[in-house]
Design a protein around this nucleic acid. Structure first.
Lengths: 345, 345
DNA sequence: CGTTAGCACTCATTAAGGTCGAGTGCTAAC
DNA sequence: GTTAGCACTCGACCTTAATGAGTGCTAACG
């Protein structure tokens, strides 16, 4: 059996109505709300077929039908008409994001809030992945005796600082020399490259400060590669929106879901920046079984072709895929443009 | 009518049993569980009196009694025996906090998590209040053309950085001069003092860079006084614990509560660092009506007698006040000690 | 042969009635 | 002052019945 034109129309009607009302959709409802020119009885026959194809299902005998995961998948892939982001919404996004070019961090986190407000869903944004970011420059600043402030600037514009222990007998000049050497050798390189190619050189030239260099390298590695402190952090926005969804009126479900939210690491795992385009993961397609009643829509924002981080939306499987996808798509594009422009300046 | 010794015993029993079971407490239950040597009937008479005093109430006619806000207040003030933090718990706190002296920020945020784990309640920690923190030193580091990185160190050891726009034609030497001047004039002073006392001096000496100085001052003000970005931030821990409490099985209540959590500003408002000691705010005593079913226990951690930030617990009014208060008390003491030691080093 | 009307059937939801039990207040006896 | 006894209250829980939206099947229609 195949999905002929009429079946497609009916499935589309079911998905759209269910997304709106959150109630199982009956044949009568479709005949009334959507002008397909056929009677409820005919629709019933067709629905029976569509159910055999696995695209819709009945919560219990003799109730209306609801789309299955496969049904949503078919809808997203074949039936959905592309939604455009409205001019109003575009304006809001434009205004709200361009205001704060100053700090990359705050742009990112604000985007998350924005996205959730515009969609009434929960948004997730993963900050720039530091692993990909190269070293630009570093400085030591005097602090208390025996300590200094190490400031590291990365190529993506992020600035980090950290208080480091130095020996009592290390002079400012020596620190300066170390910084100069690092700046000279490392600019534009990632930590892995440095370790592979320049480490012995650095040791050779500064053998006296071995302890300090080890310490600094350790911190540099942490800052550049994988320190999950500031960026590469998961920003959630609008988690409360989930509580308004009728599918999450059960405290047990809420607990499960929020547990996932609270453990940012888990989410980060499967939000790895992907290739171009918008990814839609529906219900059971999610690896995390806690998200089996949710769909996740993600996009990747880039600078100069290089994927930086992920931005996404989480909602119940019953969500407005058209609008959500358009939103994520527009947001990634805005972020990409913004970051590219920023870089060029 | 007065609260005689027997009434006190009964009220204490009611509070303790209700805290444990979350079920209204009947006269029979008390007679069985607590060996007071009197019969249920007598207890009933006494309970009737205690109810007239407003310390307990009936959810509905002919059910057991539960403590009223006033009842909890009386319990906390007069009846409760002080709980001590167990040695095991002390050890955990010791171990977990001293591990990370390096960054004040991470100590604070970690404390929050720790507190919620040990109590199964929700913890709130407000980071060091920047308004009270004085300027220590600043530096400008070269960045891209037309921009520099401004690094500000505060007396409490927090280091902040920010990218600032400088004109194309400002040289490194001029920046250095500005920094020197600031460092010279401002060390040890708060932003308000600087504005009041030194602002005109600074302008006089550096009239040429007026634009840049204005900009820098603006940023400094933001960093030192009230920038709510990094510290002075509200850390919540164990918000999910609330979902396990039987009083929050209603999605509507959860929504209200989490709304309060999400808007950190509101919480900050009434978590202003107070004087010495532990503060307990019970149910309706809270200014925020969303917290009318919750009690809040807060303490203030200090460095050298100066209150820095607030640490606290939120739970249902039906909570173990003794343990919670002991916990908050011990935690503030630990933090205070830790921070003082750190400062002295 | 596809479409439709009619009809019996299913099943979640809701309301109404009934029982149970924990708990109270009151009274009278100890 | 304390306690036993008893009638009464009221939420919690179960059962039952009514309702209604929806289905599947069959037979008739064009």
């Amino acid at each position: 059996m195949q999905m002929d034109e009429r079946k497609k129309k009916i499935l589309r009607a079911i998905v759209q109505d269910y997304v709106n009302t959150a109630e199982p959709v009956g044949s009568r409802t479709i005949a009334r709300k959507f002008d397909l020119g056929i009677s409820p009885a005919t629709i019933r026959n067709e629905m029976s077929d569509i159910e055999d194809l696995g695209l819709i299902e009945q919560p219990h005998t003799s109730s209306g039908r609801i789309p299955s995961d496969a049904g949503y998948r078919y809808y997203v892939d074949c039936l959905m008409e592309k939604t455009k982001v409205s001019e109003d919404e575009k304006e809001v996004i434009e205004r709200e994001t361009t205001q704060r070019i100053a700090e990359i961090q705050s742009v990112i986190s604000h985007s998350s809030k924005l996205l959730s407000e515009l969609t009434h869903l929960t948004s997730i944004v993963v900050g720039p992945d530091k692993g990909n970011s190269a070293f630009s420059q570093m400085h030591f600043l005097p602090y208390q005796s025996g300590k200094a402030i190490m400031v590291v600037v990365k190529e993506n514009g992020v600035v980090e600082n950290q208080i480091v222990e130095i020996g009592e007998n290390v002079t400012a000049e020596e620190l300066q020399r170390i910084a100069n050497l690092f700046n000279h050798k490392m600019r534009g390189h990632s930590m892995t490259e440095v370790k592979r190619d320049f480490l012995h050189e650095i040791y050779n030239e500064l053998s006296r400060q071995r302890y300090l260099i080890d310490h600094a390298l350790e911190l540099l590695t942490a800052i550049l590669d994988n320190k999950p402190q500031e960026s590469n952090k998961v920003y959630l926005g609008g988690t409360l929106n989930m509580l308004n969804q009728p599918e999450f009126q059960d405290v047990e479900k809420i607990k499960n879901l929020f547990q996932v939210f609270e453990e940012g690491d888990q989410i980060k795992q499967f939000l790895r920046p992907k290739l171009e385009g918008i990814t839609v993961t529906i219900g059971g397609e999610n690896i995390m079984k806690e998200l089996k009643d949710c769909s996740v829509i993600t996009g990747t924002y880039c600078v100069e072709g290089e994927p930086l981080g992920t931005i996404g939306l989480i909602g119940p499987t019953r969500m407005d895929y058209g609008k959500s996808m358009a939103m994520v798509e527009y947001m990634t594009r805005t972020l990409t443009e913004l970051l590219t422009k920023r870089r060029r300046k």
